[in-house]
Amino acid sequence: MSPVRLPDPEQLAERIRRGERAAVASGLNLLDNKLDEARQGAARLLAALAGEHGLSAGHLIGITGPPGAGKSSLLAAMIRKWRQSERTVGVLAVDPSSRPEAGGGALLGDRIRIKNTAHDEGLFIRSLANRSQLGGVASEVWPMSWLMLACFDIVVIETVGVGQTEIDIAEIGDTVCYVAQPASGDTIQYLKSGIIEIPDIFAVNKADLGAPARKTAGELTRASSRQDRRADWDYPVCLVSANDHSGIQPLLAHVDRHRRFLIDGGLFDELRARHQRAWVVRLLKDEFGTFGLGLLGGAAGVDAWLQARPSNQFAGYVQLRKHILSKFLSANHQSSLTTKEHVNEQAIV
């Protein structure tokens, strides 16, 4: 018997959509679970949450930046404003401190900095260790953020920017906000690295420092204006302070404006669908490796197959998982499987 009691994914999806906190927690546990039966349940949960219409609700925001930039305190100030306007918030705080070479443990101490008030049922924080990912964002972050989107108005993924992280976060978030630390070499390095192509909004924190913050903002403004990712987006640079709470409201206005920009330009659904496809590929690769992915025609094959079925990528993910598993099984046992278990191979190859 399994030591873990697994919930029924479809019932759980119902409860999550109703915003039951216990169900949200239980769903996140399921998405985190690597037992075979749990992976199957996780895929079904995501498919059930997305339903026939896909998930186009909510706003998924990535917040990234160098260590010490004050991301958590800034996020706390942003959350205070969101909560004042009665928007519910889910946070995935990704901590970079785990070290696989030293037992894989991690100290997750971000909640204390993000939380504002003693008790708030409209805020849900989950801390995540980065586990064995070398740079970049743990693969659990993506499904977890989608789960949270099913029940919170705003979902924030907070990460420490170290190159690959920003690239990953841009493949999850609708809006990516980079928090810069005034008068530190990080910003210069950042400008040089070319990763400046990624964020949609720049927030220079600690504006209460005065001149150094304005200088950093100036550097970022000059650099961001050269971006050509989306010609009609203006890549704003905001001066903010988590200390005296200045500039928070304008920053949030830019965040909202970016979502409207995506929707008005017809970019929003396309962006989310593209992100979903990229992460389905990544999850399949995590679980089955390049060989497993190769059974489906590689990354390009999966991407094309998913593009042909835009309504519910998660349902597609369930099917693709089953298909790879059946291929593995048939390779091992030389036995054929019922057609129900098969994906249309013609469409994949």
Binding site: R21, S26, L108, G109, I112, A118, F124, I125, A129
Partner: peptide
């Protein structure tokens, strides 16, 4: 272990909430 530490001065309610949210 992955360790969640929220610092001092927490109400029992906050601790239970953290235990739930963090799984």
């Amino acid at each position: 272990f992955e360790v969640v530490y929220d610092g001092i001065r927490l109400t029992p309610q906050q601790i239970a909430q953290a235990a739930q949210e963090e799984g």
